[in-house]
Design a protein around this nucleic acid. Structure first.
Length: 292
DNA sequence: GTCCAGGGAATCA
DNA sequence: TGATTCCATGGA
């Protein structure tokens, strides 16, 4: 049974910015410009319309509970992004421009386990291929959910993915990452690394250190997990090729971009953006990646 | 054929 | 600690 939740006069929520800014891999644009995606056991469609100069957001779909409650949590609706953007825009003109470009970004509250696996897959990979791999993984090991005559597949749980052999994982086209997924799944399934313990830990560095013990999780992947999952840490700064590029172009000006020291970028980000560096990173990443 | 992708692990100094 | 190299795969 479909549910619906409408938000009138919605600020800081543009579907393209939210779903195409690189934080999620399971939302896809539909013919009418809306986006459909699956998270948990929920399949939702999000449609944006301009009404009297304000955005009206219509969320509808099949839900594992109350759609309003689920949406408020997942889309981070109880956080004031206007305040965040005002504060970050004052830092310098570059950040202000990137925020203007990505003004509709919200950082989603995505499942921790799904983010761990997804960002291991993302290593030295491109977004279309990452989406393909995650989709095949879900089709094979997840559960089927029907929505408007089409089938969607839930992201496999720890138990569901732990039955996959190394060979089966290889068949998904994971490349060299198959062993990372296999070993990390085993480590979490066995309880050697506890996701619940991470969720109850409030020290970001401690969680980060725990994440770094997982196979295939290095500094960048750990920071993406901390930023994009329900762990929701903004005091991290994931540095990939694009972030290195934009930080070098704007502030460092090293003629050899691939030689820029990561520590220098980290310290610069912390000094300039403070405890909002994670969100700043996302505006800069989206801006640079879309505008080359 | 070559280069690149939201990097990490292994190796070596 | 810090820098190099290798790692699968597929699209441009």
């Amino acid at each position: 049974m479909e549910q619906k939740y409408v938000i009138n006069n919605c600020k800081s929520f543009k579907v393209k910015d939210v779903f195409d800014c690189g934080q999620c891999f399971r939302w896809n644009e539909q013919e009418d410009g809306s986006y459909t995606g699956i998270f948990g056991n929920n399949v939702l469609n999000v449609k944006q319309e301009l009404v009297c100069d304000e955005y009206k957001i219509t969320i509808s779909g099949v839900c594992d509970g109350d759609i309003e409650e689920i949406s408020r949590k997942y889309f981070d609706l109880d956080r004031n992004y206007e305040t965040i953007k005002d504060s970050l825009s004052k830092i310098d003109e570059y950040l202000a421009e990137s925020i203007k470009y990505g003004e509709g970004i919200r950082i989603l509250n995505q499942d921790l386990w799904e983010m761990i696996i997804s960002f291991i897959v993302s290593a030295n990979n491109n977004i279309p291929r990452i989406k393909g791999i995650i989709n095949r993984m879900s089709q094979k090991y997840g559960k089927k959910v029907e929505f408007r005559g089409k089938y969607y597949y839930t992201f496999p749980t720890v138990d569901e993915l732990s039955i996959a052999s190394k060979e089966e994982l290889r068949e998904l086209g994971l490349g060299f990452r198959d062993k990372y997924i296999y070993e990390t799944t085993k480590k979490i399934k066995s309880g050697e690394v506890s996701l619940e313990k991470m969720k109850n830990e409030n020290n970001t560095i401690k969680i980060r250190d725990e994440l770094l013990t997982l196979s295939g999780v290095g500094p960048k992947v750990a920071d993406c997990i901390l930023l994009f999952s329900t762990l929701k840490r903004f005091d991290v700064f994931p540095i990939d090729v694009w972030v290195r590029r934009v930080m070098n172009d704007l502030y460092i000006h090293n003629p050899k971009e691939n030689k820029v020291n990561k520590k220098e970028i980290e310290q610069l980000a912390k000094a300039k953006f403070g405890d909002l560096e994670g969100i700043a990173q996302q505006y800069l990443f989206y801006w640079k990646r879309q505008n080359n």
